[in-house]
Amino acid sequence: MTQELVMDATAYDLSQQTAEIMRRYNDVFQRHDPSALAELVAEDCVIENTVPAPDGARHAGKAACVGLWTAIATQAGTRFDIEETFIAGERATIRWRYFMADGNSLRGVNLMRVAHGRIVAAMGYVKG
């Protein structure tokens, strides 16, 4: 097997692993069940959240990230529609629409990075 084919196979395997992690991550919000977060999030995970505008807040460390995502996932009367998930190696882009309890909605995107089978970074942006 040539080096190019080995690299393609390695990149494919990494993308498949990232896709599975993102599927499980998205399920947390679709099912309003954060129980999978502890095994998906790395100890050194960092989130740059969408609020407060314009720059959002930074959350560092597994406990802070799991806590934030748990609060979002379990918020009563809300839902996320996943519009598209794009995977490239260890990176993922998730385009979503969030429906709030009051009936309003907003669109946004998360730029995610996975390393060693865990989410290590998430940067959220909303359409203004």
Score class of each variant (00 low, 15 high):
Ala92Glu: 01
Gly77Cys: 04
Ala92Ser: 11
Thr85Gly: 00
Thr74Trp: 08
Glu84Gly: 11
Glu90Ile: 03
Asp81Gln: 13
Arg79Ile: 04
Thr85Trp: 01
Thr78Val: 10
Thr85Ile: 11
Glu84Arg: 15
Ala88Gln: 12
Ala73Pro: 12
Ile72Leu: 14
Val66Gly: 04
Ala64Arg: 05
Arg91Asp: 08
Ala64Asn: 09
Trp69Ser: 07
Glu90Val: 08
Phe86Ser: 13
Gly67Ala: 11
Gly77Ile: 06
Val66His: 05
Gln75Leu: 14
Ile87Trp: 01
Thr78Met: 10
Leu68Ile: 13
Ile82Phe: 13
Phe86Pro: 00
Asp81Lys: 14
Glu90Ala: 14
Ala64Leu: 06
Thr74Tyr: 11
Glu83Met: 12
Gly67Ser: 08
Ala92Tyr: 00
Thr70Val: 03
Arg79Pro: 04
Ala73Trp: 07
Trp96Lys: 02
Gly67Lys: 07
Arg95Glu: 05
Cys65Glu: 07
Phe80Ala: 05
Glu84Pro: 06
Arg91Phe: 12
Thr74Met: 07
Arg95Ala: 10
Trp96Asn: 05
Ile82Glu: 09
Gly89Ala: 10
Glu90Lys: 10
Ile94Thr: 15
Trp69Ala: 08
Ala92Cys: 11
Gly67Gln: 06
Phe80Ile: 10
Thr85Ser: 11
Asp81Pro: 05
Thr74Cys: 08
Thr74Gln: 13
Ile72Tyr: 05
Ala88Phe: 06
Gly67Glu: 08
Trp96Arg: 02
Glu84His: 15
Arg95Val: 15
Ala76Leu: 07
Trp69Glu: 12
Arg95Leu: 09
Thr93Gln: 11
Ile72Lys: 00
